[in-house]
Design a protein around this nucleic acid. Structure first.
Lengths: 244, 244
DNA sequence: TCGAAAACTTGACGCAGATCAAAGAGGGAG
DNA sequence: CTCCCTCTTTGATCTGCGTCAAGTTTTCGA
């Protein structure tokens, strides 16, 4: 069995406390959530739910990375969302999934039963307004991705992806030393996210490497050596070059 | 001047009354909206707002079609959203636009000042819950579009677009007679929406025509002669073939 | 009504990225 | 340790769509 129920963590000690759906909640509201929440864990590679399935819960990613994927009848696959820690899974008001959800790494979710959570959304402005905000943020991200999928070259796509990983890893850059970052996906999964083939992803990563923009420690771990050049390769507007 | 203020229409006579942001409002809430709403019109081709601009209002499209576009520094453009009647423009909680908004046809908006509207969202569950629902619907649509942009062939993209236009025109098919439909965009705009060039769009439309799937009355008006074949060309899952 | 610009169609050709193929590199089970 | 399987890299070739180009139709202002 891939699904494991994990022991409880107090909300106040939760690593995603101030970025997740519960980030605007006061102590009282947090107590309410505390009572009904439960954890579920999934091992890397295991399915969290399939398209068409009914998912009885909604929840936040506490740890790990999950993908949302759409697959066509002939097998062509497009990743339509990447859930990183603090991201929200599930759509209040509809239980059937419109895409496959898969754990890319080991994943821990903080879950709420659908019914009770929907009641909470209706009665707790601090939750409903955060839900609106998170949905609109996701919509903005989806639109940025539409530009990438519709118009960017392979090199720009891969550079944009690396830049996004670096940004969302958002570690304080204590020194000028490069930071060790992790690719949470296989080459094939990256390709499915970028609308490319795995071979093209591999070639473009090698190109960034040979240009001295990134350096690989092993297949999954790397450092960004030149953020300026990385940003310039991404095709995005100037300025934002300084990430940290 | 492109912007024209239009005379008032009573909410109860409004053509988008039951699908827009106000669709769940009761009579009292509608009265409140009635007092603060105002109309703005834009002629075909004129800008509603540019990326980076601050938009002082939010609102619903009452009539016409508007596009949301992202443009890269070298001119590559991707349409990231199409606003049809009843769709909502603007993001509560943030006034600066993240994309250019353009009227593709003559457009009439039903507007609300940002501040008062945000207060209403906070105090009116019938509005905030509808806002959540509409944002999540848009997110679903954006994800479908990501599959199209990342994985579909040119033919599938154009067929998907035609099918979407037909679906959203949602006219009751009184007989078996084909329905006269309108393309609300130029070939270039369609190309920007589909991540293609205008030449490829033109070629694929000619192909659908030569296959007997659609028929053009003039450049902008057409009929779907074979919905089955259209759907089969779109690359989407079976079943849904029967649209009406 | 006419002229010119804008929008559209169609053809010829080239290239970025897909496809096909083969060989290395980890990593876990025994 | 070593075998085997999965993941990854790299090379050779192919192709769908982009690019460039020319001609046609429609629109619209004067």
């Amino acid at each position: 069995m891939n699904v494991v129920l994990t022991e409880r963590i107090k909300c106040n000690d939760c690593p995603i406390r101030h970025r997740a759906i519960c980030s605007s909640c006061d102590e009282t509201e947090l107590d309410t959530l505390e009572k009904v929440k439960y954890y579920k864990s999934f091992t890397a590679g295991s399915p969290i739910g399939y398209r068409g399935d009914s998912l009885g819960f909604v929840g936040s990613v506490v740890k790990g990375v999950a993908t949302l994927e759409k697959t066509m009848e002939d097998g062509r696959t497009q990743t339509v969302g990447l859930l990183l820690p603090s991201d929200f899974l599930g759509r209040p008001g509809r239980s059937t999934l419109d895409y496959d959800v898969t754990a890319s790494t080991d994943v821990t979710l903080c879950c709420f039963e659908r019914g009770p959570f929907e009641d909470l959304v209706g009665s707790t402005p601090n939750i409903s307004s955060r839900l609106i905000e998170m949905a609109l943020d996701e919509l903005d991200a989806a639109r940025d991705w539409m530009l990438l999928l519709g118009r960017k070259t392979a090199e720009e796509r891969v550079a944009s992806f690396i830049e996004m990983i670096a940004r969302r890893s958002h570690i304080e850059n204590t020194d000028d030393q490069p930071i060790k970052l992790v690719l949470p996906l296989t080459r094939e999964s990256i390709a499915n996210y970028l609308g490319l083939t795995l071979e093209t992803v591999s070639r473009q990563l090698s190109r960034l490497k040979s240009k001295g923009i990134i350096r690989f420690l092993d297949r999954r771990h790397f450092e960004v050596l030149d953020y300026q050049a990385l940003h310039a390769s991404s095709g995005d507007d100037a300025d934002g070059g300084m990430i940290f």
